[in-house]
Design a protein around this nucleic acid. Sequence first.
DNA 1: TATACTAGTATACAATAGTATAGTAGTTAC
DNA 2: GTAACTACTATACTATTGTATACTAGTATA
Lengths: 120, 120
Amino acid sequence: METLVENQKVHICSGEFVIAVREAMNVISGKWKLPIIGSLCYGKKRFKELERDISKITPRMLSKELKELELNSIVKRTVHDTTPVTVEYELTPSGKKIKNVLDAMVKWGLEHREVVMVEE
Amino acid sequence: METLVENQKVHICSGEFVIAVREAMNVISGKWKLPIIGSLCYGKKRFKELERDISKITPRMLSKELKELELNSIVKRTVHDTTPVTVEYELTPSGKKIKNVLDAMVKWGLEHREVVMVEE
DNA sequence: TATACTAGTATACAATAGTATAGTAGTTAC
DNA sequence: GTAACTACTATACTATTGTATACTAGTATA
């Protein structure tokens, strides 16, 4: 399995490849990361807005996942000096580009579903 | 966040989208699925070959993951009537196409790493 | 008879991921 | 003064995921 990255053939087992895939996996794995990213695609959101948007998430998980996403430079956190304090979360440019990965997943997923349906 | 699939704009929250992404996530999530798929990219492999190929995997996990991949139509299992019995595993066409998703992940991962490096 | 090969399975445990429920601190409206 | 808003945190638990170690069954070789 080979892949073209910046005009260079890269072997699936090359160190860079593995690290890059792992990084992408980190960002989208887990139960709540995609719902959070999905919700932030429509623009900035406050903590409580995300909590209301994402059905059944607990504040503990929301807080934990937002911290991880911030650490990984996917989400930017901004504190506003209002009363009460409001905190806004938004996707970084890198966070927005995850869309390309999701697109590839949707494309594969739909094709795969069709293949499986025809087989059965 | 919108995406183009077969000339139709599909909303990120549409049922089909969510199911398709979840399906793709199922196939690549977990500690051992990518190493297994990676190893099978080079062609058919027997159980013991995979076990030797994939450093530190236990037969329990290899067996479990192969079963899941087979259930999801990513891997095909063929039993050969030799002595001792040999079993071959190979990627289905759908399994091979997961490469497109991995490519998108590599591309994003490499770009993201560069952005993060420049920032720090 | 003992060892090694095939492809796994069984049991018990450890580690990680996620849930449920309640509480914090500071300010504002009733 | 009490309730409600903000953005969380703390504690204790359950569930899922992965590990470690040993074992099975059938055949072939030394």
